[in-house]
């Protein structure tokens, strides 16, 4: 057990001491600020309520989160290849499963922090712009739905980790997720949002409900990403 904590400590340190980690937070602060101000400015004088603001803004932010979550998953694994530290990592008396597990936990923590951070920035902008209709119950309600949506997006970002390992870098998964985001809006407009893994979380954000088939697709995608990564580390050749 101490073994995994030690590996986890190393992974946390590697991420926190990198510039990329802090740069992500900087970039994901700018987006809610600009989108938040834009949302408020474009709404009419009677529409400037917390309810209207958050429901409009969080829809865009949760989608943006998908790019962030995929980036973190891809970077945590992919940087080992681009820095050429992967071979170092494989010749250690630590099971490869523990290394993957530690990396997954670090990614999960990073993503959760990023999601809460984006929500906090959105709240700050709303408060700064003097929105009306504040209610703690309302905010909590909206936050919980946003948070669950973020978790669902985190689940479907795991194939990004797998792809980073297969492609030995973080560029391929980032490229793919950008294509997926574009593809998602097309699929959603065609009415397939409940069946495409990367649009299902948005369905939940809008309705607060998911069908059994959507849940199954979501879980299968997450399991495929996680299991694929574990299997890759255990069995793939590292040329």
């Amino acid at each position: 057990m101490m073994n995994i904590f030690s590996v986890l400590y190393c992974e946390i340190r590697k991420v926190c001491r990198s510039k990329v980690f802090w740069l992500v937070f900087l970039v994901f602060a700018l987006a809610p600020i600009m989108m938040g101000i834009g949302t408020i400015s474009s709404s009419g004088p009677n529409e400037s309520s917390w309810q209207m603001y958050l429901s409009q803004l969080l829809n865009s932010l949760s989608g943006l989160g998908l790019i962030g979550y995929t980036f973190s998953a891809a970077w945590v694994f992919g940087r080992e290849y681009t820095d050429n530290t992967i071979q170092d990592l494989l010749v250690k008396p630590v099971s490869r499963g523990n290394i993957v597990m530690s990396k997954m936990l670090v990614i999960l923590t990073w993503d959760i922090l990023l999601s809460i951070y984006m929500f906090a920035i959105a709240l700050s902008i709303g408060g700064f712009m003097g929105l009306t209709g504040w209610s703690s119950a309302l905010i909590m309600n909206i936050f919980i739905r946003f948070f669950i949506t973020s978790l669902l997006f985190i689940i479907v970002s795991t194939p990004g980790a797998f792809l980073a390992n297969v492609s030995k870098g973080y560029l391929a998964p980032i490229g793919l997720i950008l294509i997926i985001v574009i593809f998602s809006s097309v699929l959603a407009s065609m009415g397939f949002a409940s069946y495409f893994p990367w649009t299902i979380p948005s369905v939940f954000l809008g309705s607060g409900f998911l069908s059994f088939s959507s849940i199954l697709i979501l879980i299968s995608t997450g399991i495929a990403g996680i299991a694929g990564t574990f299997v890759w580390w255990r069995f793939a050749e590292q040329q």
């Binding site: 590697k14 001491r17 990198s18 510039k19 820095d83 050429n84 530290t85 071979q87 170092d88 010749v91």
Partner: peptide, 10 residues
């Protein structure tokens, strides 16, 4: 094992 000097740059 040492292949080439690999390290975490930051």
């Amino acid at each position: 094992y040492l292949e080439e000097a690999t390290f975490y740059p930051d």
